[in-house]
Amino acid sequence: MTQHQAATTPYRTGLLGNDDPRERDRLESIQRSVDAFTTDIIDGLPVQASWNCLELGAGAGSIAYWLAARCPAGRVVAVDLDTRHLETGRAANLEIQEADITRHDYAPGTFDLIHARYLFCHLPDRDEMIARAAGWLSPGGWLVVEEPYDLPPADSPFPLVQRILTAYQHTCRQHGADMTWARTLPALFARNALTEIAYAGNLGRMGGLGKDRWRPLIQRAAPALLDSGLVTEADLDEFTELLKDPAFIDIPQLTVSAWGRRPPHTPPPAAPAGEPVRG
Rank of each mutant, 00 (worst) to 15 (best):
G140Y: 02
R163C: 04
R90H: 14
G89Y: 00
D80I: 01
C53Y: 04
E87K: 09
A234Q: 12
T166F: 00
W142H: 13
L16M: 14
F120W: 02
Q3G: 10
L151Y: 10
D40Q: 12
I249G: 04
S50V: 10
R215H: 11
P108D: 04
T171M: 03
E241A: 14
L165F: 05
L203N: 06
D35M: 12
R213K: 08
S29H: 03
T184Q: 13
L165S: 02
R26W: 06
N202V: 10
D237F: 08
T166A: 04
P46I: 11
I251Y: 12
G14P: 09
H170D: 15
L56A: 10
Q31A: 14
Q3L: 14
H85Y: 15
A221R: 05
F120Y: 11
R22P: 13
L203S: 09
G59R: 06
R12Q: 15
V161T: 02
R117S: 11
W214F: 15
G135I: 02
C53T: 10
T110I: 06
Q219Y: 07
G140F: 00
L236A: 03
E146V: 13
D150F: 13
G14M: 10
A69Y: 10
L226V: 08
Y149P: 10
P153S: 00
Q169I: 12
R32V: 15
Q253C: 13
A187F: 07
R84F: 01
I101N: 01
T13H: 08
L151G: 05
C121E: 12
W181P: 06
D125T: 13
P268T: 01
V231S: 04
A91M: 05
D19K: 08
E196M: 03
A7D: 15
D82W: 00
R32N: 12
L54W: 08
R261E: 09
P186L: 00
T195Y: 01
E28L: 15
R117Q: 14
D250H: 03
R220W: 06
Q219L: 15
P108L: 05
I63H: 07
A107P: 14
W136L: 03
H104I: 08
Q31S: 14
P72K: 02
A78Q: 01
G229T: 04
T240A: 15
A247I: 06
I30G: 08
A58P: 04
R183K: 07
R75E: 09
A154K: 05
P223V: 00
G109T: 08
G274C: 00
V256R: 01
A49Q: 13
P46A: 09
D127E: 15
P269C: 04
C172Y: 05
G14C: 11
D35S: 14
A234S: 10
Q97L: 14
R183W: 08
G279W: 08
V47S: 06
T266Q: 12
H115Y: 11
